[in-house]
Computed example of a mutant assay.
Amino acid sequence: MRLPRVKPEHAPHRFGDGTIRLGGVLYGIASEITDDDGCAWAVLNLMDGTRSPAEIAETLHSAFSAVLTRAEAVEIVDTLIASGHVEEAAPGPCAELSPREKDRYSRSKDYFRWVDLHPRDSGWEPQVRLKQARVLVLGLGGTGSHAAWSLAASGVGRLHLVDPDVVELSNLNRQLLYTEADVGRSKADVALARLREVNSDIEITAASATVDGPADLTRLVRGFDVLALCADRPREPDGIQSWANAVCAKAGIPWVSGGYNGPLVSVGVFGPGGPCFACVRAGIPPRPGADYAWPGVTGATAGLSGQLVAYDVVSLVTGLATTPPGYFHGVTLLDPDGHVYARHPARPDCEICS
């Protein structure tokens, strides 16, 4: 990093006992530093975008030579830069994105720079990863229509949409890609046309096709980086999520699956590096009557489901995911404290995890 500066959203605060807090506790990205001698506080104030890391370390060593060696000063500077609360004040060029793309995704960049805890050269690296990504969206109903829209708007470079159904009037309370004029038309065809109007800078394709078994799914996921599983048929047990669990594990790609059961909206994130869908699900007590995507849903609950799927796909693609795959999360909308999170270890006898 040439000219480090603390991100404005992560401005440090020093408490009376010498503890320093960076970032916001409410946003889940705060760090606390015990700084009895004031060295870290001095470095953070020197990181204003006008000095190189070497200059900061030298200034720190000069001010604290009684308690710090030069090597220790360099280590403190390097540690704070690596914390993710610091950005490059003089970002380098980004040839991978056109001026039009930089304008389109400028607000995305602002978001990524806030939440990204990896030091970057230009700040555009997460967006470039999205541009290079290939994502398969399977199912274009309540969850899938919202997820597909969000992924297209976010700038996923290659998006393939698959759904066998036609638009029905009862879909229109929640499936935002379709209008009354589309009733009776192929969802895949309509979604393709709508999303190309949303973002003409990416490649979008679609197919009106049914997935009848693991072999069909194996053919579909070939060549993609992530599967956004938004289809709900066939249902579990031994349904399409179980197929995805085995197929994606064999292909070595992550997958995200979302759904809703009345006011409960939840999403699962699975893939290399974490326990599989079957292991996490085995650790969750069965809920009588739970049948995701049926029967009650509104535009809001479907939208939350789809947007959470898109968010997790983007997090996987950009490398901004803070939790390794292998968990369910979501919200229970009628409970103010109803955050859902479930993660269970891999079973020793699991054929997929082992």
Rank of each mutant, 00 (worst) to 15 (best):
residue 5 R to E: 15
residue 6 V to S: 03
residue 9 E to A: 13
residue 17 D to N: 08
residue 18 G to A: 00
residue 18 G to L: 00
residue 20 I to N: 01
residue 21 R to D: 00
residue 21 R to Y: 00
residue 24 G to L: 15
residue 25 V to C: 06
residue 28 G to D: 06
residue 29 I to P: 00
residue 32 E to L: 08
residue 38 G to M: 02
residue 38 G to R: 03
residue 39 C to P: 01
residue 43 V to S: 08
residue 43 V to I: 04
residue 43 V to K: 00
residue 43 V to Y: 09
residue 47 M to F: 02
residue 56 I to G: 03
residue 61 H to D: 04
residue 64 F to M: 04
residue 67 V to W: 08
residue 70 R to I: 11
residue 70 R to C: 10
residue 74 V to N: 14
residue 78 D to M: 08
residue 83 S to Y: 01
residue 88 E to I: 01
residue 92 G to W: 06
residue 95 A to G: 12
residue 98 S to T: 15
residue 104 R to C: 10
residue 104 R to K: 12
residue 110 D to E: 15
residue 111 Y to T: 12
residue 116 D to F: 07
residue 116 D to M: 09
residue 119 P to Q: 10
residue 120 R to P: 01
residue 122 S to A: 06
residue 124 W to A: 00
residue 125 E to D: 09
residue 126 P to K: 10
residue 127 Q to I: 12
residue 133 A to L: 03
residue 135 V to I: 01
residue 144 G to L: 00
residue 145 S to G: 09
residue 148 A to L: 02
residue 149 W to V: 03
residue 150 S to I: 06
residue 154 S to L: 09
residue 159 L to E: 11
residue 161 L to F: 08
residue 163 D to Q: 10
residue 164 P to H: 15
residue 172 L to K: 12
residue 172 L to Y: 07
residue 173 N to W: 05
residue 177 L to Y: 13
residue 179 T to E: 15
residue 183 V to Q: 13
residue 184 G to I: 07
residue 190 V to C: 06
residue 192 L to K: 09
residue 201 D to Q: 14
residue 202 I to D: 07
residue 205 T to V: 08
residue 205 T to S: 15
residue 208 S to A: 15
residue 208 S to F: 08
residue 213 G to W: 03
residue 217 L to K: 04
residue 218 T to G: 15
residue 221 V to P: 07
residue 221 V to F: 01
residue 224 F to N: 14
residue 236 E to C: 02
residue 244 A to I: 04
residue 253 I to T: 12
residue 255 W to K: 08
residue 257 S to Y: 08
residue 260 Y to T: 14
residue 260 Y to L: 11
residue 269 V to Y: 10
residue 274 G to H: 10
residue 275 P to S: 05
residue 281 R to A: 12
residue 283 G to Q: 12
residue 284 I to F: 03
residue 286 P to T: 02
residue 296 G to N: 14
residue 299 G to V: 03
residue 301 T to G: 05
residue 305 S to H: 09
residue 316 L to H: 11
residue 316 L to A: 11
residue 318 T to C: 10
residue 326 G to Y: 04
residue 335 D to N: 09
residue 339 H to Y: 13
residue 339 H to W: 11
residue 343 R to F: 06
residue 345 P to I: 02
residue 346 A to V: 01
residue 347 R to E: 13
residue 347 R to N: 07
residue 352 I to P: 06
